[in-house]
Design a protein around this nucleic acid. Structure first.
Lengths: 138, 138
DNA sequence: TGACTCATGTAAGTATTCTGACATTCATTG
DNA sequence: CAATGAATGTCAGAATACTTACATGAGTCA
């Protein structure tokens, strides 16, 4: 039953976010990718894939799209190993800034029926559920 | 931030469910479809699509797959309108029963770190968030 | 040093889901 | 009654994500 609620909320949230980001020509996964890069500049493709909960092949094609649009940059050759550290461009930061503003609105709307205490408890509960399922299956 | 947690939990849950259902040759969306049919026997394709948070085209192809495997039945022609009421077959109910057992385990594991009160509050909070985002955008 | 293991980036093909479009049926409404 | 609108089922094509597979580079250990 809780799994169903999760899917429901995720579905609605995804719809709202896609709507809000469409004017910027960004999808929700693309937004997530930019957000990850903001937090972890120079992250590798694989790291971004793990952070975005997609395969590294999927993230790879996403990065190419963002790269072709000039939102992110990757060096031609790796300096060490095979890792190509990705960073946001100026243009990418601007796009992200606009996107964040829109997403924040939706996020705020989503939790608007909850007070601060309830929000903390919700976040705490979700983290515990994640831990419980993440046990050890790699 | 909460959106990220939701995506994370959903991702892990989906993985665990797919693993658990693989021996039965069922995907998580297929399981959801069978579960919906159990609760609403004779549901239409569109109703199932709404309940499973997918488009009716997607649900249509899913139903064909389940139909070809003999898990669900649809009449050839509609008795009224265009609706083709779908129902679980004997074989479908058996498959669902096996699937439910496995899914229940995972569901139980997921909420194992929470006590009864916390589980209620979590469910309540999720419902409120859903309502807040579901306002009026059709 | 050399074999082994592991993680990474990438390519190709498959699977899944969505968007756009159309015909059909029922209900409403003038 | 005729016309309109809404909902349904379905087809075709595009987008998206995944699986399988392979080559490359780094670290480990005998």
């Amino acid at each position: 039953m809780l799994g169903y609620q999760l899917k429901h909320l995720q579905s609605v949230l995804r719809s709202r976010m896609d709507e809000a980001l469409r004017p910027l020509d960004l999808s929700t996964p693309q937004y997530a990718c930019l957000e990850l890069l903001k937090r972890s500049p120079g992250a590798s493709n694989s790291e971004l894939a793990r952070g975005g909960f997609v395969t590294r092949q999927t993230m790879n094609t996403m990065l190419r799209g963002l790269q072709d649009r000039g939102l992110v940059t990757r060096p031609e050759k790796a300096t060490s190993g095979r890792v190509l550290p990705t960073t946001l461009t100026e243009k990418g930061e601007e796009a992200l800034a606009g996107a964040v503003a829109r997403v924040e609105e939706i996020s705020a709307l989503m939790v608007s029926p909850l007070n601060d205490s309830q929000r903390s408890h919700l976040a705490e509960a979700l983290d515990r559920c994640i831990d419980a399922l993440s046990s050890d299956a790699s």
